[in-house]
């Protein structure tokens, strides 16, 4: 992975992968039902709707009703997948996720799309930078942020076998394929996508790719970076975090999310209580974004390769 030609790597849409896969899984899993709140063309659940119209429920622009209805379907034995944009799924329906779904530990999968700032031109009203934090604090909730389309496929497949509430965060933009078709995703497990010993960058989503880019640049300076895909945010791979802390003695986290409450917080919580180690968080300050092209926004708000390189230097300077 290390020396792969990161600039020519194929890009693929995570939401397209989800839409195709769930439609496909619907053929053999008759208990799958899909709900959407008037965004099925964007979340790609329209593919399921076309193939299994009787098991697709468009709930209109009513996210709260969608989530509680999904809870009812789950309580009657169905496997509901509810989709909308991340900002609406976790913001507008937070209480429904808490009360209707998580309190009874119902088998509802919330697959959001358009997470993060790469939603771009739609601007801050549509940029979910708090969704992972909102879902992570929820009892009984599993939280996954896949890094690419191949991992999305693995996560959706896994979700079908895993009972209970789950939040899967996808994005609008196509992301580079950093994983092969067999990406080895396991709930609660991370994967080292580039080995190294001076520092570990723990990343999720698009930031795994950005971290690999940063690692390439840092290698030129003679800094050996371990890059870990932490897609399973909750449960989190404590063992891998502590191994990285022990072996590298300096950590950076990278996520397309607020630096509050997401992956950065999760990693910090683990190391602080077990093996205090410098952790520098790459992510968005708790401010609202702007309209713009996604790569420009990532640069403006400090979630690009340069920001990761800078964070690595800072973390190394704190290393004892």
């Amino acid at each position: 992975m290390a020396e792969l030609t990161l600039n020519t790597i194929e890009k693929k849409s995570l939401r397209d992968e989800y839409g195709s896969l769930i439609a496909e899984l619907g053929d053999t899993h008759k208990d799958i039902v899909v709900l959407d709140s008037d965004l099925s063309c964007s979340t790609k659940t329209a593919k399921f709707a076309k193939r299994h119209p009787e098991r697709f429920f468009n709930m209109g622009i009513a996210e709260a009703d969608m989530i509680s209805t999904a809870a009812g379907l789950a309580s009657a034995g169905k496997k509901p997948y509810a989709s909308t944009f991340a900002v609406f799924a976790t913001g507008r329906a937070w209480d429904q996720i808490r009360q209707s779904v998580c309190l009874s530990k119902l088998n509802v999968k919330i697959v959001s799309t358009h997470g993060g700032i790469t939603v771009g031109e739609d601007g801050p009203s549509h940029q979910a930078m708090e969704d992972v934090a909102l879902m992570r604090v929820m009892p009984n909730m599993t939280v996954i942020v896949p890094a690419d389309a191949n991992e999305t496929r693995a996560v959706i497949t896994e979700s079908l076998k895993t009972p209970g509430p789950m939040y899967i965060r996808l994005t609008r933009e196509k992301f580079p394929l950093i994983h092969g078709e067999d990406c080895g995703f396991k709930l609660g497990k991370s994967r080292v996508v580039r080995d190294g010993g001076d520092i570990a960058i723990l990343a999720c989503g698009y930031m795994v790719y950005k971290s690999l880019q940063a690692a390439n640049l840092l290698a030129e300076e003679g800094i050996s970076c371990r890059v870990i895909n932490m897609s399973s945010i909750k449960p989190i791979d404590e063992e891998a975090i502590l191994r990285a802390a022990t072996e590298c003695k300096a950590l950076v986290t990278a996520e397309e999310h607020s630096i509050l409450g997401g992956l950065g917080s999760a990693v910090t919580e683990v190391v602080c209580e077990n093996n205090p180690t410098p952790v520098v968080r790459v992510g968005m300050d708790p401010v609202f974004g702007k309209s713009g092209k996604s790569e420009i926004l990532l640069e403006k708000f400090g979630m690009n390769t340069t920001a990761i390189v800078k964070a690595v230097h800072r973390s190394l300077s704190l290393k004892r």
Binding site: A64, A71, A74, S75
Partner: peptide, 21 residues
């Protein structure tokens, strides 16, 4: 069958059960 208490959610859950049925 389902947890309630935060008002306004029960009818949606009942609808979900009815759709499944």
């Amino acid at each position: 069958e389902v947890s309630t208490g935060s008002l306004g959610q029960g009818l949606s859950m009942a609808n979900g059960m009815a759709l499944a049925s």
